[in-house]
Design a binder for these strands. Structure first.
Length: 478
RNA sequence: GGCCCGGUCGCCUAGUGGUCCAGGGCGCUUCCCUUUCAAGGAAGAGGUCAGGGGUUCGAAUCCCCUCCGGGCUACCA
């Protein structure tokens, strides 16, 4: 039997980090088993639809490198893959259950339901539907249904337990009394999530249901629906949540949670995949840098954790640095392109890149570090020049550097290096104390790529002009 | 409140009865390298394995209780 797994986001916002992690696990499992991965859009809540959400899911996942085989835009043997386009199937399913006596029509108004709940809460009872409409005669119900708004509810057994052998959490049982007669079909003719997943997972021949931990509590509801239909329940596994620093489910208020945001912030998909995979799964060895194909090979459901894992931006940053350093120069140029102004000379960029590659945590940083090569508008003050030593000495340093650098031939790192050292020697200053004002004058910043390489790429003429400019700035300040 | 799940350094985690006075990584500190910042190298701080009881010659690992945390509890997913 070939593996068929699915991920089923609802288009209620842009792609969330937590659901990406779950998707990734489905993806690893599908690929390592040469199975089929299915994307299904669960848009049964018409009130919560967000325009563009499907695009966001497609863009985000594609960027992450996740590929799937069946879906809304790619089609497949079980099309359509958008639940709002599958309404007749759910309606038929609900009718079948009513016909077989496993479900019933409910005419209660939302107001009545709320009142019942409020009363139960006041008496400190479990809040759940009081099954009023369960007593209505089916033929009477059928008549009323023609003119009255109604929902379809499942008849949940009165007693007993129902359980699963979760592939991650192990055996879990629920007393059936704690489950209410859930709504299967809403009054607008749309199914609830619970009906829709079961009907679709069955229809689409899903062999393994892998989803987030937050679905664990509704699993008994699904089990009951399977039972009502007389269908076999496929293996089920839940994956632990990705948490915020407060141990609660990662959410917007914790900061960036949208993949799109990480893309624009200069993160590499390789780093995202690598890092995310390691929240909730560990290989059992001390390896931790993994490509997607490594993960497809090594991920095992037996190694998935039960406890949720916290999102840690520092660790992500570290992985991002690791993956940036692994990029070839060509590849780095390609990745950087969207982050670099179009008018920056790519040949110059290419020359400078090796000097900043190991200094970047994110792709956006390249721009800041190399900007001095592409603009002559440096922003720094006299104070930045003299931060290490006194103004007079610094003035002297700039003068000496100007003279020596002007004569330096060829204008290349070893020669520049020798000049800086000689000036330091003459001044009786440390090399660093001489280099800093030069760095500031030439780059406008106190940190950046190596000074001699920076000067070489800038060229003798512009380097000298900038040092002169710094020199004038000092005079002005004095 | 009810149901369910979870609990190893600040964080991600290894560990499935002895080789664990608990290992790796991130972060942090110090040092080396060094013309800044990184990267790299070295060293270090950091854990009463939530707590308490058992079982056992022996427990982070098995059992029980407690505590703490979380998820769910809709005609949301």
């Amino acid at each position: 039997m070939t593996v068929r797994v699915r991920f089923a986001p609802s288009p209620t916002g842009s792609l969330h980090i937590g659901s990406v992690r779950t998707t990734l696990y489905n993806y690893f499992f599908a690929r390592q088993n040469k199975g089929t991965l299915i994307l299904r859009i669960e848009d049964t809540d018409q009130d919560r639809l967000v325009p563009g959400a499907i695009d966001s899911i497609y863009d985000g996942l594609r960027w992450m490198g996740v590929t799937w085989d069946e879906g809304p835009r790619e089609g497949g043997p079980h099309a359509p893959y958008v639940q709002s386009e599958r309404l007749p199937r759910y309606q038929q399913g609900a009718r079948d259950l009513v016909a077989s006596g496993a479900a019933y029509l409910c005419f209660c108004s939302k107001e009545r339901l709320a009142a019942v709940r409020a009363q139960q809460a006041a008496r400190k009872e479990i809040t759940r539907y009081d099954r009023l409409c369960r007593a209505i005669d089916p033929s009477e119900a059928a008549e009323r249904a023609a003119g009255e708004p109604h929902v379809v509810r499942l008849k949940v057994p009165d007693a007993g337990t129902i359980g699963v052998d979760d592939q991650v959490y192990g055996r879990i049982d629920w007393p059936v009394e704690t489950i209410e007669d859930q709504v299967l079909l809403k009054s607008d003719g749309f199914p609830t999530y619970h009906l829709a997943v079961v009907v679709d997972d069955h229809a689409m021949e899903i062999t393994h249901i892998f989803r987030g931990e937050d679905w664990l509590p509704s699993t008994p509801k699904h089990l009951l629906i399977y039972q009502a239909f007389g269908w076999t329940v496929p293996p089920i596994a839940h994956f632990p949540n990705v948490l915020g620093p407060d141990s609660k489910k990662l959410a917007k208020r914790h900061g960036a949670t949208k993949v799109e945001q990480f893309r624009t912030d200069g993160y590499l998909p390789e780093a995202m995949v690598n890092y995310l995979a390691l929240i909730g799964w560990a290989p059992g060895t001390e390896d931790e840098v993994f490509s997607a194909s490594d993960l497809i090979e090594r991920w095992k459901i037996e190694q998935v954790h039960k406890a949720g894992g916290k999102w840690d931006r520092d660790r992500l940053d570290w992985f991002n640095g690791v993956w940036i350093r692994r990029l070839s120069l060509d590849e780095l140029m390609r990745r950087l392109d969207p982050f670099i102004p179009a008018d920056w000379d790519r040949a110059v960029l290419r020359r400078a890149l090796p000097h900043v590659q190991e200094r970047m945590k994110t792709l956006v940083e390249a721009r800041d570090q190399l900007e001095f090569l592409f603009t002559d508008e440096l922003r720094y003050g006299a104070a930045d020049l003299v931060r290490k030593k006194d103004a007079d000495g610094t003035r002297d340093v700039l003068d000496r550097a100007l003279a020596a650098l002007g004569a330096a031939r060829p204008f290349e790192p070893p020669v520049i290096d020798a000049v800086v050292r000689r000036v330091a020697d003459e001044m009786g200053w440390k090399v660093g104390e001489v280099a800093m004002p030069l760095r500031v004058a030439v780059t406008g910043r106190t940190v950046g790529p190596p000074l001699n390489d920076s000067m070489e790429i800038l060229g003798a003429e512009r380097t000298l002009a900038r040092i002169e400019q710094g020199r004038r700035l000092l005079d002005g300040a004095a």
